[in-house]
Nucleic acid binder design. Structure first.
Length: 278
DNA sequence: CACGAGACCTGTTCGC
DNA sequence: TGCGAACAGGTCTCGT
């Protein structure tokens, strides 16, 4: 499921606790339960052994990656990278719970467990070597769209080629963390048709797109509880999204029926009136 | 080189 | 109600 706002919210939830969960920071991993060794990149035995006795120091996000800093039982700083891909989730559960689709879990010193669940098994986890440079893993990623340094000018500089603008938004080297949902949300806010050639955007359109990306992501993080509840628990609740999953319904701005098309192989929803073809 | 299609997996939803 | 087909938020790899 997760794009930048959902991954950000999961990191926040793990860091701060809440919703019945205790904060993960400071917990010691007493054991590792590996229900599906296939989710571990690299040596799965080293993953289990390297984390046993480790203490969690921090949980961070870069693009759609979750980075967990731990100090292993020898006191060395190690990093765990988790990518949730389409259907992964990471959450703290009571010690006696065994969630459906659990792939691995860390048994914690307070009796709880950090569970990684993923029905589709696209997600992966990796324990980096002690001397591995985390940042080096992410050099191909574009800027964080919510950073102060991500300006309209910075966006413009990366918008090259004549592929559809939606394909560019899905490219993690252009903007890190945007996926199919927030690409559609951003383009609707910017009133841009998803197939507009990237290099045909005017300066004004780039400014609108820059604004749309940041607004869509910021507002989703702010409403993250709703978004998560909608995603995971209650599809009957009102959709927190402006166009995603609303095909066939009315545009929230002009009432025109929202259309779908396929761009870059992905289902794409847009308003044919607010977002006229290029 | 740039771009799109296919592959990776499996659960859920849709249509007959 | 049952069953197969279509579809799903991401990212790599490969072929054109």
């Amino acid at each position: 499921m997760p794009e930048l706002p959902e991954v950000e919210t999961i990191c926040w939830r793990l860091r701060e606790g809440g919703q019945g969960e205790a904060p993960l920071r400071g917990r010691v991993i007493t054991d590792v339960a590996l229900a599906d060794p296939g989710v571990v990149d690299g040596d799965s035995a080293a993953f289990v052994d390297g984390l046993r006795g480790a203490r969690v120091q921090d949980i961070r996000r870069r693009a759609k990656w979750i980075i967990i800093d731990v100090d292993d039982r020898g006191g060395r700083r190690r990093r765990v990278l988790v990518h949730l891909k389409m259907t992964g989730d990471l959450h703290v559960r009571a010690g006696d719970e065994r969630p459906r689709f659990e792939r691995f879990a860390w048994e914690l010193d307070d009796g709880a467990r950090l569970c990684f669940t993923d029905p589709r098994r696209f997600g992966h986890v990796e324990l980096l070597a002690a001397d591995d440079d985390v940042e080096a893993r992410f050099t191909a990623l574009g800027p964080e769209p919510l950073d102060e340094t991500f300006t309209a000018r910075a966006l413009r500089a990366r918008l090259t080629g004549r592929r559809p603008i939606k394909a560019s938004l899905l490219d993690q080297a252009v903007v890190a963390g945007v996926g199919n949902i927030y690409a559609d949300e951003s383009l609707w806010l910017a009133r841009l048709h998803p197939t507009t050639p990237t290099n045909a955007l005017s300066d004004d359109e780039v400014v609108r797109l820059h604004h749309g990306i940041r607004r869509a992501l910021r507002e989703s993080i702010a409403q993250s509880r709703e978004a998560l509840a909608w995603r995971y628990e209650n599809r009957a609740a009102p959709s927190p999204f402006r166009v995603y999953d609303r095909a066939g319904g009315p545009c929230l701005r002009c009432g025109t029926t929202l259309s779908t098309t396929t761009v870059a192989g992905r289902t794409t929803v847009f308003c044919p009136r607010c977002q006229p073809p290029p």
